[in-house]
Simulated assay, not measured.
Amino acid sequence: MLSKSKAKLAGQNKYTFRQRVKRDFVLNKSLYLMIIPVVLYYVLFCYKPLYGVIIAFKNFSPNLGILKSPWIGLKHFRDFVNSVFFLRTVKNTIVINITNLIFGFPVPIIFALLLNEIKNRYFARTVQTVSYLPHFLSTVVVCGMIIDFTRDTGVINDIIALFGGTRKTLLGYPQYFVPVYVISDIWQEFGWGSIIFLAALAGIDQQLYEAAKIDGCNRFQQVIHISVPGIMPTVVTLFILRIGNIMNLGFEKIILLYNPAIYETSDVISSFVYRKGLQEFRYDYSTAVGLFNSVVSFVMLICANRLSRKYNDMSLW
């Protein structure tokens, strides 16, 4: 048997790299054709635009173009670090992301574990469908709902007034922006985020649960000793990715919710880049700020991956 395996391996090694690629393409032609749109998407919209990062180091002028604009080195980076907006935008970005990580990351995990314990499949599918729906709502619609609900005449203030509180427009006070943003984000994404954990739970060997029942484990003990360890690699992987994105926060929801009165806690790096780049037409400066943000995120991703590999023996690479 061993000699047959060696002979087969030797037969594979006699082909050159080009021949092996050609042979693999013939055998898996349909798979290669299916992946072409994905590759084109990343090449055209992710890798090709990287050429434009050069303007972060130039005094960019649309009339001169990217190559002919004068080179000024790290001036835009120094201007951003020394500006009054640096500490505010970085602090707000980190605070919102960490708050969302602490309160938002466990919710889809807990939801998936609870949903997995429901024995009535019809009821479970109904709950899943209802929980997924907010994810498919437009960001504009969601933000419109949030603004209406948090007005002094909105339903949230109706509840506050019912318990003796004072009516106030929540998005007019800086201290309320982070809770409103995080709670609405959890409501919108926890159902959709639970899909990957439900898939991980479905991959756990059911014989483990049968053995646990024979040993006298109740449902809670089965969750703690079988379900949670079974999805832990998925949890660690997603946690590392969340750490790597801790400096990234989309500007769409931010700019639809914030106003000058609450810039103190709502202005983040992405909204600052939006204002500088698209409203003030400072493309070079906004590109420098975005590049700074990406570099910091990349370093944090590397560090999180190394720490996870060191202490948990789990990592992305």
Rank of each mutant, 00 (worst) to 15 (best):
V95Y: 02
S3C: 00
D284C: 00
L133C: 05
G104F: 00
T169G: 08
L208F: 02
A304R: 02
F239T: 15
L249T: 05
V223S: 12
P62D: 10
V127S: 15
V182I: 15
K6G: 06
D215A: 07
I196C: 09
S308D: 06
Q222G: 14
C143I: 05
Q12I: 08
A200P: 13
D284E: 03
C143M: 15
F197C: 06
W71C: 01
F105A: 10
V299C: 03
R78E: 13
K29H: 04
F177R: 04
I243S: 05
N28Y: 06
L87Q: 15
E210L: 01
Y181N: 15
D185W: 12
I96F: 01
S184V: 04
N100M: 07
E117Q: 08
F17P: 03
I186P: 06
I196L: 05
S266K: 06
G73C: 06
Y181R: 12
A304E: 08
D267M: 12
L101Y: 12
K22H: 11
V236Y: 00
L301S: 04
L115V: 05
S227P: 00
L307N: 10
V273Y: 00
Y311H: 07
L101H: 10
G154C: 04
L31D: 04
V289A: 01
I224H: 08
N82L: 05
T16F: 11
E264S: 15
N63Q: 07
L87M: 06
I118C: 05
L208K: 09
G144H: 08
P174S: 14
S270L: 00
V26Y: 05
N312D: 02
V21G: 01
L256R: 09
T166P: 03
T166K: 15
M34Q: 10
L241N: 07
I110K: 07
P260C: 01
Y176P: 11
S184F: 14
